[in-house]
Amino acid sequence: MTSSPPVIDLDRVTKEYPGGVCALRDVSLRIVPDELTAIVGPSGSGKSTMLQLMGTLDRPTRGTVRILGHDVAALDDRQLSAVRASWIGFVFQQCYLTAHLTAVQNVANGLFYHGLPRRARLREAAAALDRVGLGHRRDHRPAELSGGERQRVAIARALVARPAIVLADEPTGALDSRSGETVVQLLHELHRDGTTIAVITHDAGIARSFDRQVEILDGEISAAGSA
């Protein structure tokens, strides 16, 4: 009998920054397919550090990070980049959209490092925009969109490559509460459609609406809800 490995497996991970700051201490966490996990904690508790380790944007000082069973420490830049391109979708607090590109062109950038021709990228991007409910805003530039819409474009860009997991770092942090609410609703919908998602937030209210909550304080996991 075969079982699929956790999408992300942090095994006793410690991250120390140069200068002596210990941002994560001996953290273990598994995220399995189809989970919707909230990682919640106050500012400075180590949430972003954890997301960067889960997303292979940084390497741990000690401990092991596995993505779908592959130990990140054994992978070179080329392999890590391919892992990020195909398996991990990122959403950040700032949308990081290119100002002079349209919504669909921005979403298509999510496939830029996949080797797909441009037409195919734009076709996939249009479908991803439809999934986040912005099909009608396809040819608008970021400046013509509301903050919430911009973040939904960024989510479409994270989804367009059909990653194994979407990692979102404070996706509502820069939004007013109403726009934030639409973004949270969208994450729930995507989860219902079968997307594995980990959301970082310092907002306990938002975290409560998620199935699983992981609380983090001063670089250590203080409480982990059940899967």
Binding site: S4, R78, A82, A85
Partner: peptide, 12 residues
């Protein structure tokens, strides 16, 4: 465990 193969890296 059924570990999927690493994704292939693409050229620009």
């Amino acid at each position: 465990m059924n570990t999927p193969p690493l994704p292939r890296s693409a050229r620009l």
